[in-house]
Write a protein that binds this DNA or RNA. Structure first.
Lengths: 237, 237
DNA sequence: ATACTGTTGTTTGTTAACAACAATCCTTTG
DNA sequence: CAAAGGATTGTTGTTAACAAACAACAGTAT
């Protein structure tokens, strides 16, 4: 099959395996493909109208992101989540964010700080109705991505990309369970993050580290409480 | 080309892309392929007597390990190292090892502790002549791998695998420069690591964290001093 | 009924050929 | 002579067909 520009021209040289990767990631994160479900290379290839090559590559990349698991000669499955995964992911996240804010205090440029502020500004303009769980999570991930970017630490950012996908997947999972969100958390979102920008700007490294640590701990507590009331493992087999 | 069992039967189901990955990794870590050098898929494929598929897969895996860099439509190069890379790698390592020892204090089994001890015992039996820089580094990586394993934290271990490869590559690079090793470090290797096992056994988490931190800092200082006297970047283009 | 074995079907692993892209060199033109 | 442009060459991206591994099942012997 020839690459067809479906409607809009592809701006950058996006290669087929990129498209498949993004499509598949979206499908997983939007919960179109449920955790535990089997993904056959050929099936997906036919469905997307491409050959198995790019699909194979996409699956490998998503395995690295932790969104799918691959077993030799047995194929790929959408990753499923247990409480252990939450502990692992959040302990990694905590360590990574501390490192990130440390480097951000040293390396953040004015543009980096502006980028973070801009996200907060956009959030502040949302009406209460617009502040859905999903929306908040999106802003949250976006903000923290900006934080990691401001650290200017390539390897750290690559690790964050992986974590980000997994955290996203976890959040999607908690959305699907209809436990009501902790209302006390909503109004604090803006101020909490604004404080973080502030300590980075003033380069209070020590304070920054403790601040981000408790920030992440709070996130863990929230997601963890949601999770414990749901099933332990969403994969059937 | 058909898979030929070269001499001995392959114990586990090793697939062709695994073989290529390992071969290529060895070639890079043994400095057969120098940093910055170009790797063409076809060339390597012909050289190894396989098709481009497995080679492509191997390159992708090694990119994730940080041993090669891939640019779209431009192919792969063996990664080259600068002082920035050292800072990045060691700051990551520090954060990861602290997390590892924290989890090890909680999760290490008797078998885990034995495994670490066993490595130290093997090292103690080496004669002074055998304690080359290369040998010491191998033992060091092995010990720290055992430490990470004892944390029983899958994601942490996957991150360590990546770091391990990169540290290995860095060490190889410092070996190739003929700066003489810090003699004071040699006799301390055994006792230093034994202390680490001890704090894990006695679950002194707090003490363990500070201990491992200074341990890694020491490693950074050593490698860093070696590096600064050599060229900043080993890649020519 | 149960354990074993051969068979069949499905899926992944591998290959070789084709298409698209990037870099280089050479030609053409100002 | 320099710069723009176009063919050329080498490399990566993609495809489709083939080979090998696994899983499920049926049939047979005990």
């Amino acid at each position: 099959m020839v690459v067809k520009s479906n409607g809009l021209a592809l701006a950058s040289r996006r290669v087929l395996s990129d498209v498949v990767t993004d499509d598949l990631r979206d499908a997983i994160l939007s919960h179109d493909l449920e955790p535990g479900i089997r993904i056959a290379e050929d099936g997906l290839a036919i469905q997307l109208g491409v050959s198995r090559g790019p699909v194979r590559e996409a699956l490998m990349r998503l395995e690295r992101e932790g969104l799918v698991t691959i077993e030799r000669h047995k194929g790929a499955r959408v990753a499923s989540w247990t409480e252990t995964d939450i502990e692992e992911i959040y302990s990694m996240r905590s360590a990574m964010e501390i490192l990130a804010i440390e480097w951000a205090c040293k390396n953040a440029t004015a543009a980096d700080l502006d980028a973070m502020e801009e996200i907060l500004t956009r959030f502040s303009k949302l009406t209460d109705k617009q502040r859905t769980r999903k929306k908040i999570s999106q802003f949250d991930l976006e903000f923290h991505s900006a934080l990691f970017a401001s650290a200017h630490h390539d390897r750290l950012n690559r690790t964050w990309e992986v974590l980000r996908s997994q955290i996203h997947a976890l959040l999607v999972y908690t959305w699907s369970s209809d436990i009501k969100i902790n209302k006390a958390y909503l109004p604090a979102w803006g101020p909490d993050h604004r404080k973080i920008v502030e300590v980075i700007r003033t380069k209070q490294t020590k304070k920054a580290k403790t601040l981000i640590n408790s920030h992440i701990e709070g996130g863990l507590a929230r997601i963890s409480s949601h999770f414990k009331e749901g099933p332990k493992d969403i994969s059937s087999k």
